[in-house]
Write a protein that binds this DNA or RNA. Sequence first.
DNA 1: TTCTTTCGCGTACCTCGTACTCGAAATGGG
DNA 2: CCCATTTCGAGTACGAGGTACGCGAAAGAA
Lengths: 243, 243
Amino acid sequence: MSDDQPTSIWMRPERLERSGPGRRPGYSRDQITRTAVQIADAEGLEATTMRRIACELGTGAMSLYRYVPKRDDLFDLMIDMVIREIELPDRPSGDWRSDLSLVAHQTRATGLRHSWLVPLLSGRPTLGPQLLRVHEFALAALDGFVPDIDDVTGYVGMLNDYIHSAIRREIGWQEEARRTGLDPETWKRDYVGPYVRQVVESGTYPLFTRSILESRMSHLSLAARFQHGLERVLNGIGAQVAI
Amino acid sequence: MSDDQPTSIWMRPERLERSGPGRRPGYSRDQITRTAVQIADAEGLEATTMRRIACELGTGAMSLYRYVPKRDDLFDLMIDMVIREIELPDRPSGDWRSDLSLVAHQTRATGLRHSWLVPLLSGRPTLGPQLLRVHEFALAALDGFVPDIDDVTGYVGMLNDYIHSAIRREIGWQEEARRTGLDPETWKRDYVGPYVRQVVESGTYPLFTRSILESRMSHLSLAARFQHGLERVLNGIGAQVAI
DNA sequence: TTCTTTCGCGTACCTCGTACTCGAAATGGG
DNA sequence: CCCATTTCGAGTACGAGGTACGCGAAAGAA
């Protein structure tokens, strides 16, 4: 990266197909990003360091900076790469409910395959091209059913909030377990178990206690619970949408 | 911290009021946490390092480890300290809508005062005592209006998802601006501005473009937009609640 | 006073992001 | 074919961060 203009990575495309003097690049943004994604999938985001990625490619850490301005920009590229996995048709079907369901389930599947995705996504207001594609599809799904564009944005935002939060809940435990260096079972039993038990036994929080002890949801599969919550959100939208 | 049992910070209370031999502690968890909160408020979470906190207290970094097992645990303590600022009555009023509104606005105010709070909270499945208090209040607000405890949990979760996402959206820009080291105005104009303009002009994303250009929401104050979205969520709940 | 326990904190190790620098390679003009 | 120009690869190094270790000081107990 020759010039260091402070601008989004999406405005700084890789210099490809150059003709002129100079050595030819031996790596590529795509290759580096793919390697980073593999490491993050296998060992978590905190293991995805510049040195580790470079090592995996059989090179030195500084070589990567010919292709990526900063580590943070590499994260943006990683996000965009895996969001490409969200498969959607070119146009919505006309059934907004099943269209939004499709977005939800595809996003969930991708988020679970790459447990670092949603936590990383939450802190970034920047929209990469692939996220833009998914967002546009969701907006289009409600277009025609909701007259006001601000309402369309609002409902899509509400759905996104649910999807992201739900994924985070599903991933939360295993990620926290890895962060503390314990396996999920041990973490649940020895790390939070005693605390939750103490809270329940204190009697100070009766409804929280009921939500733990009397929950039938907790016996359902995670997929079923996701579906349950999704329907709650879609019902919320449907109740305010002209049919 | 003498023993290094892997367990939640809430199960490892500070040893206070000790009687016996040995030097008396010169600091306290509370004092350290308060200092950390001040630094994070003023300079962001990434500036809240062990060395910086210690320096502020006029001591060495390692002294803090007598009071806090790990930096991560200190974060949990910081979260709990500022959530204490969320003021709620002992019992809900009986009007679930205004009760949940109160939770939403109090949480928003606290989240905006401490811009590191929500981003930090999002990644942690652990419930501190103060968060538990707020959660219990929200559950109690819907108790009696929603028969199934799982539904109560679901609605409260949906509301929380909205509140957190909305706060993150409000903070996102300024935080990203600080992360990149630019002031918000410059960031918006030079960093994302050109990209958004390019996206709009490309014509590939017509609905996203409309949501930018035709939005009336964007001319409202942030508080009004929060209120707008909140009412959307409350309407979603209300549509499915026995009145 | 002396012993035992606890605190304060300096030193040190390891890891990380990345600025700087220089030799190697590749191309086009002569 | 040779050399000037440009670009790439990557080693070295700096500063900052979390925290393990260990030692001297302090404070109550015997």
